[in-house]
Nucleic acid binder design. Sequence first.
DNA 1: CGGACTGTTGATTCGAATCAAAACCGGTGG
DNA 2: CCACCGGTTTTGATTCGAATCAACAGTCCG
Lengths: 242, 242
Amino acid sequence: MMAPLTTALLTKLTASNVLDGEDIQAIQRLPIRFRELDARQIIVADGERPAECCLLAEGFTFRSKTTFDGLRQILSLHVPGEIPDLQSLHLKVMDHDLVTLTPCELGFIPHDALRQLNRERPNVASALWRETLIDAAIFREWIVNVGRRSATARMAHFLIELFRRLEAVGRTRDGGFELPITQVELADCLGISTVHVNRVLQDLRKEGLLTVNRANFHLLERKKLEQLAGFDPTYLHQHPDL
Amino acid sequence: MMAPLTTALLTKLTASNVLDGEDIQAIQRLPIRFRELDARQIIVADGERPAECCLLAEGFTFRSKTTFDGLRQILSLHVPGEIPDLQSLHLKVMDHDLVTLTPCELGFIPHDALRQLNRERPNVASALWRETLIDAAIFREWIVNVGRRSATARMAHFLIELFRRLEAVGRTRDGGFELPITQVELADCLGISTVHVNRVLQDLRKEGLLTVNRANFHLLERKKLEQLAGFDPTYLHQHPDL
DNA sequence: CGGACTGTTGATTCGAATCAAAACCGGTGG
DNA sequence: CCACCGGTTTTGATTCGAATCAACAGTCCG
């Protein structure tokens, strides 16, 4: 039994999709290979052709691309329950890296098994397709973030998005969350320099909007942060919205 | 018969997907409502809940978001044969605007008809899912573009991407393409100011890398532009890559 | 002809990058 | 237990790419 693995996935899927009992059983029957990885390990690399998808059960992963002159841009952060390389089911070649941010518990699901599941359970296929579309919606918002927002607003937007997504899978505690991320990585998420990340975080602390000690981010003034960031949660599509 | 409409779609779909005769016939049987729109018209607005998808047969459209303080970011440009709001099939609420850049010929396809098509023709469902995944891959590259590349490299990258995508649907002529876009809109694509767009274009012209008169972009030195942009075409997934 | 975009140019400002150097922190090994 | 090390965070000085401000020319069109 791979209980903890499918549980994470089902928590995520049922949070914003409608699945019936048979759908859930079919998901629970998926053959999943369990594996643990340390922090900062490449799970799948740019250019590879994986034959399985990676379900994140515990920890954080990110996707990133590196430009020819060595600059890195982080494209997305992933929270437990997500399948960060689900696109590989239909796009054979990876166009970016998938990397662990923290130590992770992962479940690998063969493409074949997923394809069969999609064929037999149209509901599940729709739900998975939908997850990739939400993924894309988040990419869109990140384009706006790096393209049009000030460094401070970017940081605020990033943190609020993360808070909301973690909240949806029950990983927040009284207005805060645990995220072991360095300022270098934050810089690569936001498209700014690490020195500037440091200064922006200081500003936000000075304003009393948040605290950060170790990996613990605490958003003291969520409303104000959202206002500063111009945050509109629509793009997260967190409700089944039928 | 809506021949020109489905032709554009099929050109696009078969360029990077494998469909059989029955798939194609099923697509041709889709009920499509034809409509023409002038340039700069909103097709679907942020917040709406459309009941149909929009197939672009002729012209250009773009997707955009506007921040609370009025800055606009263009998220994607679309070429004939694409369905720029295909995500609305599974995400009920629009999280951005879909707008015509030029006068357009559009075909509107009811969600119901598409859902039925997906149920009956799994191949087509896969192909459409794949198109939304390529969409997402392009978003990822745009994040890198605005996050980590200089203004000049951004412009070069943008133009090369467009060239390749237009080439795939047969809309280029001897190293150039027709794109009636203003510098204001280019600025919103690249996350820079319009003044800077002007200067960047001048630089590229001065270097002899391209010419622009009216709407006609001519990439004189594609290789050099690609080098300048650090362009790697993998993310476009233009081959069925089985 | 007048008006509204659009494109161009120059002067100035500003946000953020870069450069450089400390301070800090957790681990490792002597 | 402490010296040391690499990675991380912090601070300050300086530079730079791009934004902003402002004005003007070009084009299209009613």
